[in-house]
Design a protein around this nucleic acid. Structure first.
Lengths: 339, 339
DNA sequence: GTGAAAGCGCTAACAT
DNA sequence: ATGTTAGCGCTTTCAC
């Protein structure tokens, strides 16, 4: 268990100078002679000196870690967001500490409670789809740990948030459906209570309204985010009378589930029922027929939220920003009436 | 920047006892009166005390972090492995610090070099596909930081390794192809030099040999792991004379690439050319025709490797284990000659 | 069973 | 420009 590493004391001893000078030289403080600095640097390399983060953290009351709390990583969107985060974090000398909630509010609570704040300088959070626990997050912020929320953001907390343009993405999606000739458009929504889910629902509703198309509550089905949910929703939808001729799904996985269900029922996708998703998961290009969808800027969400968090960490009173990134409509086969 | 948290000193002061007693009570050391212990515990909750990991780490020369170094996380296998790791890590009070190499040996080197070992108790590594840098890893181990390798393991380092049964998985895959009536079987391999890639190649070769089938070097194509590589490999393969009637791909993404290329060329998958992959990525069920594949126990790989690493951390001289987990053949449409 | 005090490796006044 | 020293929050002898 006991390992001994080279410390600044070792460097100081070898060079016959004080630890303070070594410390200063290592950190490029300006009141140290260039020659001394070079000596120290050379010696540090020679001795393979590595700073002790615990000691630094203890003095500075900080770590070099940013925590990331999100539901799952086994999907395209989240793993891509993390890739974006890591890019910026690494560049700025921060490590990522990853926490997975499995989309459970209880787990989220446990993680937040057990978090030793000395171990984390700031938090990047995508909340679980369970009931809103805003006060819990507020307490963390009050403790001096900045939080930036992304994708799934809680309402009522004054801090930076970053998301894609869910409303307009949904609007564009539904409008594309309408322009493609579909008239009875259903929506497979996510669980109620999540802001982005509601924004997509609103976008859907607004597009229908703008084009004087009917809203049928039967055609709006709330369920989870999985492919399986998409299949089940579709089976339910097929029982409706009148039956919709298109579906806007809250994400690609549900859309893929819908496609799979339709194929089992031998219903022609595009021709009989058009499908559009949201995310631009690589799977949307591979599924047959390929899935029309709204691309989310996942990588950029990751980069931007990390950059924002770092600003919060550096400036105690950084004014919160709410960033909304644009989405892109990607037209493929699943919304072609004839092909 | 300066935040003040409750410390054991605060608890001691409130209770009129010494910090030593508080420290002992908090850690359930046995030489503290039960009544005192209860008082301390109650006060700790009341004051919302959170241990300072930096201080503990400084004294104990440890963190509570395990580092994970892997190429990318935007794919099913790796993100699932991480999910398994996190499950065990969380249970044991460890945090995961994530590092992405983007499959670059240079980046891997940078990460290893910049790693302040005071920040990490052990490392879980899946090496990049670039030339082997075993000495680099050995140095880390010599410094007292245990490493457990998973999936892509370097040869020549004596530490625990955990992988799926690549040889037998490949053997089963190719044998299934043979039993399905395919006779000219090609292999889309990964980059040369990676152990698991070689094991799969060996399994392929062994199965051919066991069934007295010809080995044609033209039919063995080495390239990257991406879907695009699979497409390109397939295009190249179609030029061969004689032309193979089946392909065993080193992973599902390449297999999917192959399927896509075949569809573009209007060649009947299964009937004209059979395809089998490796991983059981969810995509293999969605692609059309669905992909026969060899399932890897990704979640279990994560769990087991984390459990092993924790043993290494706890016992300085834990005897390294090499674990090989079984794979499962999953038969779908892409290897059906008629259907 | 509890307290006093040293010290983990580093930074940051305060001296010189 | 450099040295001295206190102290970050905690654990751990060593006393009592």
């Amino acid at each position: 268990m006991k390992r001994h590493f080279v410390t600044i004391k070792d460097i100081a001893k070898e060079l016959n100078i004080s630890v303070a000078t070594v410390s200063r030289a290592l950190r490029n403080t300006h009141d140290v002679k260039e020659a001394t600095r070079q000596q120290v640097l050379a010696k540090a390399v020679e001795l393979k000196y590595k700073p002790n983060f615990n000691a630094i953290g203890l003095v500075k009351n900080s770590s070099n870690n940013i925590g990331i709390i999100l539901p799952v990583i086994t999907n395209y969107y989240f793993s891509t967001v993390i890739t974006g985060i890591q890019e910026i974090a690494f560049k700025n000398g921060y490590n990522m500490v990853l926490y997975l909630t499995d989309d459970s509010a209880d787990r989220e609570k446990d993680i937040l409670d057990e978090l030793s704040f000395s171990n984390i300088d700031g938090l990047l959070i995508c909340i679980s789809s369970m009931p809103d626990q805003s006060d819990r997050f507020q307490r963390v912020i009050d403790n001096g740990i900045p939080i930036v929320f992304f994708d799934r953001v809680p309402s009522g907390i004054k801090t930076s948030k970053i998301m894609q343009d869910d409303f307009n993405g949904a609007y564009k999606a539904v409008e594309h459906l309408i322009q493609s000739g579909y008239k009875r458009i259903a929506h497979f929504a996510g669980p109620a209570g999540l802001l982005f889910t509601e924004k997509r629902l609103e976008g859907y509703l607004a597009a229908l309204k703008a084009h004087q198309l009917p809203v049928n509550q039967q055609w709006i089905i709330h369920s989870g985010f999985s492919q399986k949910c998409g299949e089940e929703d579709m089976l339910r939808l097929l029982l409706c009378d009148p039956r919709p001729d298109a579906v806007f799904a809250v994400n690609d996985r549900k859309a893929v589930g819908a496609i799979l269900a339709l194929k089992k029922e031998k219903i022609a996708i595009g021709k009989d029922i058009g499908i559009i998703g949201f995310t631009n998961d690589p799977i949307s290009e591979i599924v047959h027929p390929s899935l029309t969808t709204v691309e989310e800027p996942a990588l950029e969400i990751g980069r931007r939220s990390c950059a924002l968090l770092i600003k919060h960490i550096h400036k105690k009173n950084f004014i919160p920003e709410e960033v909304i990134l644009p989405t892109t409509l990607i037209i493929r086969e699943s919304t072609k009436k004839s092909g």
